[in-house]
């Protein structure tokens, strides 16, 4: 491209580029709207306050954990351990209440800290020991699940105070479920972290080019570790919400949960190669998955089909994203 033609087409290119940054999200958002509209017509039970709030509450666990996962994926990492960590946190939080009589808020904090500790281990394994994120967190997936079984002897933890139900089942301000409020708070916090803090900016930079980030003076280890701590903490907090929803600590909770969480981030435009991903996109991804689950139940579709549909959506989302990026790259030569 030369100066003359560059300036002539520059504005058009800039506009197209900015649009294309949103297009992958728009595509996911479009899919969300289409599914929403379809379900509104197809099932009389869908568009009711009860059902919508129910979807919101069901989505909370995946959405909250997916915000942390987005951060990890932006650094070109992955956190496979979130399902196990959520179970560990849920069980530990439950034990804090049932065995030690801690009040609900402290127990929720305790569960979150358990998650953060797992995340810290992941982070140190990745940034200090130099393990591949896939391997480090795969190990944690197994370790955390093992500790859950050891701590509970694979038995559910019951005998929790009624106040604990608040987290996953409570409502505020005339019927808005607390989990929905939690999604909003975590999403806004995640948005601010990604767009306005050093941590967020450095996450994009490290995911885009780790060596460039290091040579720019960014303390790689500290920030990379922090990212996994946040992912672990949110997984722990998500585990507490999940435990609250069933009013017990379930050792078997969250097996395969990481797949939904990763799917939400990827459908929302996060790239496993790093450097790309947004909270808004991830939320759209999480709700799309939840809508499909909900719709399948309402329409009496065999639940096994849900898995197939979600898998196909992942393919389409990633294919679309790569196709769009290739176009952008070739147009710029």
């Amino acid at each position: 491209m030369t100066e003359g033609t560059a300036n002539g087409t520059a504005r058009g290119n800039a506009l197209r580029e900015r649009l294309s940054d949103f297009v992958s999200q728009l595509a996911a958002a479009g899919a969300l709207i289409v599914v929403f509209a379809f379900l509104s017509f197809a099932s009389p039970d869908f568009l009711t306050a009860d059902n919508l709030f129910n979807i919101g509450s069901q989505t909370a666990v995946v959405a909250v954990i997916a915000v942390g996962m987005t951060l990890v994926i932006i650094t070109a990492g992955i956190d496979l351990s979130v399902g196990s960590v959520a179970a560990l946190a849920g069980v530990m939080g439950a034990l804090l209440m049932s065995s030690y009589g801690l009040p609900m808020p402290l127990a929720a904090l305790g569960g979150t800290l358990v998650g953060a500790a797992c995340g810290l281990t992941n982070g140190l394994l990745v940034s200090v020991a130099g393990l591949n994120p896939f391997i480090a967190t795969l190990g944690m997936l197994s370790v955390a699940r093992g500790i859950v079984y050891i701590a509970t002897d694979a038995q559910s933890v019951f005998g929790l105070p009624d106040s604990f139900r608040l987290l996953g089942q409570g409502v505020v301000a005339g019927g808005i479920p607390i989990p929905v409020v939690i999604i909003l708070v975590v999403a806004i916090a995640g948005y601010v972290v990604l767009s306005r803090t050093k941590l967020g900016r450095y996450a994009y930079a490290m995911g885009s080019n780790l060596e460039a980030a290091r040579l720019s003076g960014i303390p790689i280890r500290r920030y990379l570790t922090s990212v996994y701590v946040i992912s672990g903490a949110l997984a722990g907090f998500g585990g507490m919400i999940a435990a609250s929803r069933v009013a017990s600590g379930q050792p078997n909770y969250g097996i395969g949960l990481e797949l939904d969480v990763i799917a939400a981030a990827v459908i929302g435009g996060a790239s496993l190669f790093g450097g790309q991903g947004t909270v808004v996109g991830t939320l759209i991804g999480a709700f799309l998955i939840a809508l499909i689950r909900n719709g399948a139940v309402l329409l009496n579709v065999n639940t096994f089909y849900q898995q197939v549909i979600i898998g196909v959506i992942i393919w389409i989302a990633v294919f679309w994203d790569q196709y769009r990026r290739r176009k952008l790259a070739s147009a710029s030569e």
Partner: peptide, 13 residues
């Protein structure tokens, strides 16, 4: 490209 720039980030960033 390999060590200097975060290619996916903007000029400003």
């Amino acid at each position: 490209k390999g060590e200097g720039l975060a290619l996916q980030l903007g000029v400003d960033q």
